[in-house]
Design a protein around this nucleic acid. Sequence first.
DNA 1: CTTTTTTGCACAATCGATGGTGCAAATAAT
DNA 2: ATTATTTGCACCATCGATTGTGCAAAAAAG
Lengths: 353, 353
Amino acid sequence: MKQQGKKKATIYDLSVLSGCSASTVSAVLNGTWRKRRIKESTAELIQSLAEQHQYTANLQARGLRSSRSGLVGLLLPVHDNRYFSSMAQTFEAQVRSHGKCPVVVSASRDPQEELATVETLISYSIDELFIAGATDPDSVHTLCEAAGIRHINIDLPGTKAPSVISDNYQGARMLTQAIIKRFDDADPLKPEELFLFGGRNDHASRERIKGFRDIKTELLGNDSDACIQPTGYSPDMTQKAFEAFYEREGKLPRGLFINSSINFEGLLRFMAQHPHETFADIVVGCYDYDPFGSFLPFPVIMIRQDTESMLAKAFELIEETRPAVKIHLIQPELVHPRTALKGPLDSIRDIDA
Amino acid sequence: MKQQGKKKATIYDLSVLSGCSASTVSAVLNGTWRKRRIKESTAELIQSLAEQHQYTANLQARGLRSSRSGLVGLLLPVHDNRYFSSMAQTFEAQVRSHGKCPVVVSASRDPQEELATVETLISYSIDELFIAGATDPDSVHTLCEAAGIRHINIDLPGTKAPSVISDNYQGARMLTQAIIKRFDDADPLKPEELFLFGGRNDHASRERIKGFRDIKTELLGNDSDACIQPTGYSPDMTQKAFEAFYEREGKLPRGLFINSSINFEGLLRFMAQHPHETFADIVVGCYDYDPFGSFLPFPVIMIRQDTESMLAKAFELIEETRPAVKIHLIQPELVHPRTALKGPLDSIRDIDA
DNA sequence: CTTTTTTGCACAATCGATGGTGCAAATAAT
DNA sequence: ATTATTTGCACCATCGATTGTGCAAAAAAG
């Protein structure tokens, strides 16, 4: 009844046990047996044998033969961040609901690493690849293309494969406006008091910066280059930028647009070094939602990118035979301060509380 | 020079191109060619051909033959949480540094899902499995055992495989003590003002509860069962528990020990529903570190579990031929309020800022 | 009781890489 | 020049599943 630490049972083992050929066993166990006109009783015999011996197919062998693996990949820049980790969570649920096996890997926002990682995934014959936040989506595309793997960009668009991204321009406009509106009419925010920190020269940052500047100019009449402080996606660099600013100005800007929660962590590091008064009256807008970030001691307005819709759309597109190479924008959501949204974890049933 | 959307090159293609046999090509490309006494010039020829045609080995085929895959798995309860996402990040880095390919999957803290997921991983012939926070590590062990897969428990221990976990008892003592000490001597915390929320009947929760109660009794002289409110690992249940408490008592306990950052999110949800005064004077201790959580408007003391050391130890053990089935405790770290620690993201070099 | 049709299954090639074995040619030893 | 070694590589079975094809036996048709 149970395997005693031996090898796993194969169709050949079951073939011997059942007296049928291996191909019959295979057909029965992969569900194609009706098409192959296998007798019902034969199928039942084999199935019960399979169960007794805890047979499970060797997926490498199956994948080798069929040149498909049942694996669906998600390439992430990093795991350790609520935006991407919730994307991973949502991704897994959606892939599983399609009966496939999710594989999530990160590549540290390093183009080399991205390509190497994708090469590896391809070598395992993954069936589909979701490319999230890749620095160089088009090179990844080339690899997938050559291997005939369906793929799609998420979060950061490419020019050679369909992309599903958050509407960064609109999101930035909403966020910037919300920051500005947050200030009292008695003491309104002045243009030189509203800064953007974080991001780099990628599509998302550019769009957000554009949205930021447009609204700023619209509502505050003016916007100078000095108010844009790209720092990359590094908490440390962001902290340094804040420190430098504080060094120069003796205070922080009253209005802060922070490009991502990763950059926001740079602000935390700054905060740890300074007394609370230093930022008692600031208003922060962060492009990304983090539940804890939403409850900080100053108003934090956040943008929650709609990863569910993005992934749903991506799944839809990736199923299409020849999806158009275009960018699909998904509207993000403005999250007011002190808001605890539900997330992918909420769909998990927690037994035995 | 470049493949035009064709199939990927195989050793057979290179065999034809080079005039050598497939086995020679294979030996050259997998590095065993010296052992097989292949002429250096032959090797060079084949290598350059491989490069020209962008050959990469089909890892499914290799895995099938060698019954190893080069994959190392990490089974997580969930992704969307800083503790586990930073574990995933660290895991990836460590696996890569060992020249293997990391695969991270989550199983929603559902025993069925855990087993099914592991079955799948085994079917892909993963070489090693790190089982983090499994509800039923011993069943997972049985599967791995039968398949001859090296495995180890992290975060939640099992009885059949070596385990590396955080010292939950000590951590809880440190945390509880820090909460108590946080109160003024003028108005010290009373035993009936210190509650523990969250967790379920798992090893970690039990140890933490024990540590909590021991220190509480030691320092405050008394501890009642009513002060322990397990709610499972669900933000929603935790919120409900807080709401119920507030309903009954008209206020929150001044001292709160929260079992995990997931439960802490339940407190956030409560906070969103109530004015700030409701918890102006509370002190929270959370078993788990979240950088944003550390900067909330009330003192939040956190425990950072040392995922790097845990994983490093786990890697060490998993390499051993016959590791003892024992529990290895890793000391966690107390994190004072308003602390922004460095994390695995900091080791990522951010180019092109 | 034939002939035709259907049913039920076995055979064998295949996916791509690995590694044991064997053998000819080149080189060294006698 | 002959024998003994060494060098360099080809051959082939193998990993476990999939799938097109073919062929008996059983059932239906005549």
